[in-house]
């Protein structure tokens, strides 16, 4: 029973993390119809920025997280303006090649600068260890993840539904041509959204160092997870990817806990099955 609750909590926490890491991709795929296999690279950048600031420069944890987010967002914005913008409307093979190339380049740079080893971080005192609730030990960091990512998810949902930018974004998702015809600056909306998604990935990467690990292979290692969240969750809401990410997180942690000999097989199978069961939603939109 206690084990089940621990697994559930860990699963929800890593699901929340996955959500923050992946939500930007659902926008890239759904809004811009770009197969961006390099999405995880922005998470990796955020992770490294956080590690360097925290471990080498002695910056406290929370400012490091903020810096990781901003750095990844800035990089996302620059790459969108310079490179991604040229790939809108191109066919999937070009996008696949481009984004795999970007993963390789960023991985090589990370390897050159930081080495191939797994990075470790020292969490601050107030996030380490466990708290006892009702006789069950719960990791403080897991609780922190759930709270923080929950706030991010709620903020995104609110932002998408209530703000002017959200309304414009939804208009652009629904029909880019019509939105342009109405005079919306679709190009600027795309850039900002891409930067926001990249920044969130950076935040997720920084938060994930402790949970998911960090090395130059990060973008490819978790690529499938991001794709599952997007494929299952859809692009037109925050809730879809959120639910998908939580399910995936719980499934993954439970699989590794109870059937470790099967390992990542569970996730890959889930991905294929879910893609076959639900090829519509986002993917139906992006198919055309």
């Amino acid at each position: 029973m206690a084990a089940a609750i621990t697994v559930l909590l860990d699963g929800v926490a890593s699901g929340m993390l996955l959500f923050v890491l992946s939500v930007g991709l659902s926008v890239t795929l759904g809004l811009m119809n770009v197969v961006n296999l390099a999405h995880g690279a922005f998470g990796m950048v955020g992770g490294y920025v956080c590690v360097v600031l925290l471990s080498r420069a002695g910056v406290p944890f929370v400012p490091s997280l903020a810096a990781a987010t901003l750095a990844a967002a800035a990089l996302g914005w620059v790459l969108e303006r310079l490179l991604y913008v040229r790939l809108y409307g191109r066919d999937h093979l070009d996008q696949v090649l481009f984004s795999i190339g970007l993963v390789f380049v960023m991985g090589a740079v990370a390897d050159w600068l930081m080495g191939a080893r797994q990075q470790l971080i020292q969490l601050p005192e107030w996030l380490s260890g466990r708290v006892e609730i009702g006789g069950i030990g719960l990791g403080r960091y897991r609780i922190f993840l759930i709270l923080l990512c929950g706030v991010v998810a709620a903020g995104l949902h609110f932002g998408l539904v209530r703000t002017r930018f959200g309304a414009r974004l939804r208009a652009a998702v629904d029909d880019g041509v019509v939105a342009r015809g109405m005079g919306l600056p679709v190009g600027r909306i795309f850039s900002l959204t891409f930067a926001l998604g990249s920044g969130l990935a950076g935040l997720g990467g920084a938060l994930g160092v402790e949970v998911l690990g960090l090395d130059p292979n990060f973008p490819l290692k978790y690529l499938v997870y991001f794709l599952v969240v997007v494929a299952v969750g859809g692009a037109n809401s925050v809730i879809g990817p959120f639910v998908a990410a939580i399910l995936l997180g719980v499934l993954d942690v439970a699989g590794k806990y109870w059937v470790p000999q099967v390992g990542a097989f569970v996730i890959y199978t889930a991905m294929v099955v879910l893609l076959l069961a639900r090829p519509d939603g986002l993917l139906a939109k992006a198919r055309s």
Partner: peptide, 25 residues
């Protein structure tokens, strides 16, 4: 081939990884 081009692309990726993991295990 069942689903659209994009979903199909991801299915090829997923199947490839599945087989890799199966051989690994």
């Amino acid at each position: 081939l069942r689903s659209g081009a994009l979903a199909g692309l991801m299915v090829t990726l997923g199947l490839g990884l599945m087989l890799y993991e199966a051989a690994n295990k």
